[in-house]
């Protein structure tokens, strides 16, 4: 009797669990997979001057036959084109490079901040956390625009430095890669600080004392204990900065110059200036494939972390 009740409630429970799991899957299906399929389909098409600016267009009125007819015209030409023009490969490599350097800088800037927060008195920590999240309350675009005001030749930074007499002529920062790095580091800093803080904050401070007790000077204790124990935070933070930074468009567009080559910008130019949707789509698909690698690595690392706990 008891058993029946419990097995019944178990199956009910399982149903509930399925329903719960299906919600995010349905979401992903609708808002991620479906658009991706559409983009992928466009990437197999050919550019034309028309609305929409590609062909073939599937004629759903003909049913399956319309689909088959369109499918027969699909080709990988656009992907081959990406390998033929060096600009795409250069843009991908340059994006990866900029994202990588920016991630390292963000880590170097973010680690001391997170460390300071984790070591701050417990009563201050919520406030400090709030301050880290505070920039999100303003539009990302506006914050990047604000950096133009700071970095331009007659901007706040140059005026300030000239007022102090440190420099005589304004520094040219805006429209250079330096401005792109500043923009990325600034924009993605919270994504670095938060996982670092959460891993540092969990750390038992007696571990450092134990290391010192066993003969470790503070700096060595930092390298041998603090850094290894915050590694999950370092990895998470780096992925969270690196992945979106690779495809970043707004920052290189607003702060970067003509020398700044990033795939996000290339994609934008293909899509809006050249109105070449198929090539733009192919660029996007390849970008996605490139980013799948770090995302998979990240996931695997997270799982390993979970197992270790």
């Amino acid at each position: 009797m008891d058993r029946e009740v419990s097995s019944q409630s178990y199956s009910k429970n399982r149903l509930g669990r399925w329903a719960l799991i299906m919600v995010p899957y349905a979401w992903l299906l609708l808002f991620f997979l479906a658009p991706f399929v559409i983009v992928f389909k466009i990437s197999l098409s050919e550019v034309v001057v028309a609305i929409p600016p590609y062909k073939p267009v599937i004629d759903w009125a003909q049913g399956l036959a319309g689909f088959v007819e369109a499918a027969q015209q699909w080709s990988l030409d656009n992907y081959i084109w990406l390998t033929e023009d060096a600009i795409y490969l250069n843009a991908y490599l340059s994006s990866l490079q900029i994202a990588f350097i920016a991630t390292v800088i963000t880590l170097l800037v973010g680690y001391p901040i997170a460390y300071g927060m984790a070591r701050a008195p417990k009563a201050w920590q919520p406030t400090l956390l709030m301050l880290i999240i505070l920039p999100f309350w303003t539009s990302f675009l506006i914050r990047v625009y604000a950096w133009i005001g700071i970095l331009k030749n007659e901007g706040l930074l140059n005026q300030f430095l000239m007022m102090l007499g440190i420099i005589d002529d304004p520094l040219v920062i805006l429209n250079t890669n330096a401005a792109v790095y500043i923009g990325i580091v600034y924009s993605y800093l919270p994504f670095m600080v938060l996982p670092l803080y959460s891993s540092l904050e969990k750390m038992d401070s007696s571990l450092i004392e134990a290391a010192e007790d066993l003969g470790c000077p503070p700096m060595q204790a930092f390298w041998k204990v603090t850094i290894p124990l915050s590694l999950p935070g370092i990895i998470a933070g780096c992925f969270l900065v690196f992945i979106p930074a690779v495809g970043e468009f707004v920052i290189p567009d607003l702060l970067g110059g003509s020398e700044t080559l990033m795939i996000g910008k290339t994609l934008w130019v293909e899509f809006f200036s050249n109105r070449d949707w198929p090539v733009a789509s192919a660029v996007a698909v390849v970008l996605l494939l490139i980013l799948v690698i770090p995302i998979v690595l990240f996931q695997r690392q997270q799982e390993k972390q979970k197992e270790a706990q």
Binding site: S206, E209, A210, A211, P217, L229
Partner: peptide
Amino acid sequence: PPYRRPVNMMFQSYALFPHMTVEANIAFG
């Protein structure tokens, strides 16, 4: 400083280094 004192402490929380094996913990000092 603590790291030069000829005393060693067993901590209440044990403070074992979670990223090291038992062996490595003992060998640390």
